[in-house]
Amino acid sequence: MHEMSIAEGVIQLLEEQALAQQFSRVKKLWLEVGPLASVDTASLQFCFEAVSRHTLAEAAVLEIIETPGLAWCLGCETQVGIRQRFDACPDCGSYQLQVIQGDELRVKELEVD
Rank of each mutant, 00 (worst) to 15 (best):
E15Q: 10
T55W: 03
V33S: 04
R53I: 02
E32S: 14
V51Y: 05
S24Q: 09
R25H: 08
A18T: 04
L19T: 08
A42H: 11
S38K: 09
Q22P: 03
T55P: 08
P35Q: 12
F46C: 15
L29Y: 11
R53Q: 15
T41P: 01
V33E: 03
L31W: 13
A50I: 14
E49Y: 06
H54K: 08
T41R: 04
Q22Y: 01
A18G: 07
A42N: 15
E49R: 15
K28Y: 03
L29S: 10
V39Y: 01
L29F: 06
A18D: 09
L31V: 14
L19M: 09
F23Q: 06
L44G: 00
L44A: 01
A42D: 15
E15M: 12
Q22E: 12
Q45C: 13
S38D: 13
Q17M: 14
Q21D: 08
L29C: 03
G34H: 00
F23Y: 15
L44I: 08
Q17G: 11
P35Y: 12
S52R: 05
A50E: 15
A42S: 11
L19K: 13
V33K: 08
S24F: 10
V51F: 09
V26K: 01
H54F: 06
A20W: 01
G34K: 04
E16F: 04
T41H: 01
L36Y: 04
L31C: 06
V39N: 09
G34W: 04
T41F: 05
Q17H: 05
Q45D: 13
F23A: 12
Q45F: 04
W30L: 08
E32V: 14
V33D: 05
C47R: 00
Q45W: 06
L31A: 06
L36G: 01
V39P: 05
F23S: 00
T55V: 07
A18M: 04
K28I: 01
F46K: 07
Q17K: 14
F23C: 13
L19F: 09
P35E: 11
L36A: 02
F23M: 13
P35M: 13
S24T: 14
S52Q: 12
S38C: 09
C47H: 12
L31F: 03
R25P: 05
E16A: 11
E32Y: 04
V33C: 03
F48Y: 15
S38F: 11
V26Y: 01
G34D: 00
S43I: 14
K28R: 15
D40Q: 14
S43G: 08
C47F: 11
C47Y: 13
Q21S: 08
S52H: 02
F23L: 03
A42F: 13
C47I: 10
L31K: 10
W30A: 05
K28F: 04
Q21R: 15
S52T: 10
